[in-house]
Amino acid sequence: MDRSLNKLLVHHYKKIMIALALIISGIYLVQTVSDITSWKSNYNYFTSEKSKEHFEKQIKESYSFDDQEQGKVFLYFDLNKEETVYTDSFEEYKNYNLTVFNPNEDANQLAFNSYPFYNEHFLQFLIIFVLSGILLFLLDLKSNFNALLFTSKYKRSTIYWNKYYLIGGTLSLSLFISKIISLLAYRFFIPNTFLNISLKQHIISSFSGWFTLVSLFILCSFLGLIIGNWLFGLAATLTILFTFQSFLSNIDYIVQTFFLNEKDLASKVSTNMLSTVLPLRQVTTQPFNALPLLILIFLSAVVLFLGQFIFESITLENSGNFIIIPKLKRIIQIVIIIYGTITFASGTFLLTFFPNEKIEYTGMVINSFKIGLILLALYLLTDFILFNKKPKIIEKILF
Rank of each mutant, 00 (worst) to 15 (best):
Leu5His: 07
Lys15Gly: 03
Ile16Cys: 06
Leu20Phe: 09
Leu22Lys: 08
Gly26Pro: 00
Ile27Asp: 05
Val33Ile: 15
Lys40Tyr: 00
Ser41Lys: 13
Glu49Ala: 14
Glu53Arg: 10
Phe55Cys: 00
Lys57Gln: 13
Lys57Ser: 13
Gln58Lys: 15
Ile59Met: 06
Tyr63Ala: 03
Phe65Lys: 13
Gln68Arg: 11
Gly71Met: 11
Lys72Glu: 08
Leu75Tyr: 04
Phe77Asn: 01
Val85Gln: 10
Val85Gly: 00
Val85Pro: 11
Val85Thr: 10
Ser89Cys: 02
Glu91Asp: 13
Glu92Gln: 14
Pro103His: 04
Asp106Tyr: 01
Asn108Lys: 12
Ala111Lys: 09
Ser114Asp: 13
Tyr115Lys: 11
Tyr115Pro: 01
Ile127Gly: 12
Ile128Leu: 15
Phe129Leu: 08
Val130His: 02
Lys142Leu: 07
Phe145Met: 10
Phe150Tyr: 14
Thr151Gly: 03
Lys153Phe: 05
Lys153Thr: 13
Tyr154Asn: 04
Thr170Gln: 02
Leu171Pro: 05
Ser172Lys: 07
Ser174Lys: 03
Leu175Met: 14
Ile177Ala: 09
Ile180Asn: 00
Ile180Tyr: 03
Leu183His: 03
Leu184Asn: 12
Tyr186Pro: 02
Pro191Gln: 05
Leu195Asp: 01
Lys200Ile: 10
Gln201Cys: 04
Ser206Ile: 00
Phe207Glu: 10
Ser208Phe: 02
Ile218Glu: 00
Ile218Cys: 04
Cys220Val: 09
Ser221Glu: 02
Phe222Asp: 00
Gly224Trp: 02
Leu225Pro: 01
Leu231Met: 13
Leu231Asp: 08
Gly233Phe: 00
Leu241Lys: 14
Phe247Val: 04
Leu248Met: 06
Ser249Ala: 12
Ile254Ala: 07
Gln256Thr: 01
Thr257Trp: 04
Asp264Leu: 15
Ala266Val: 12
Val269Pro: 05
Ser270Cys: 07
Ser270Tyr: 12
Thr271Lys: 13
Met273Tyr: 07
Leu274Asp: 05
Ser275Thr: 12
Ser275Lys: 10
Leu280Asn: 15
Arg281Trp: 13
Thr284Glu: 07
Asn289Tyr: 12
Ala290Met: 13
Ile297Gln: 07
Ser300His: 06
Ala301His: 03
Val302Ser: 07
Leu304Asp: 02
Phe305Trp: 08
Gln308Cys: 11
Ile310Phe: 08
Ile310Ser: 00
Glu312Gly: 11
Ile314Thr: 09
Thr315Ala: 11
Ser319Glu: 11
Ile324Asn: 00
Ile325Val: 15
Pro326Glu: 03
Lys329Ala: 01
Ile331Ala: 09
Ile331Glu: 06
Gln333Ser: 15
Ile337Gln: 04
Tyr339Asp: 01
Thr341Ser: 14
Thr341Arg: 09
Thr343Phe: 00
Phe349Gly: 01
Leu350Tyr: 10
Leu350His: 10
Thr352Arg: 06
Phe353Cys: 11
Pro355Leu: 05
Glu357Asp: 13
Lys358Glu: 15
Ile359Glu: 12
Tyr361Pro: 05
Thr362Gly: 07
Ile366His: 12
Lys370Ala: 12
Lys370Thr: 08
Ile374Gln: 07
Ala377Ile: 15
Leu381Ala: 14
Asp383Glu: 13
Phe387Asn: 08
Lys389Trp: 07
Pro391Ile: 00
Glu395Ser: 14
Ile397Val: 12
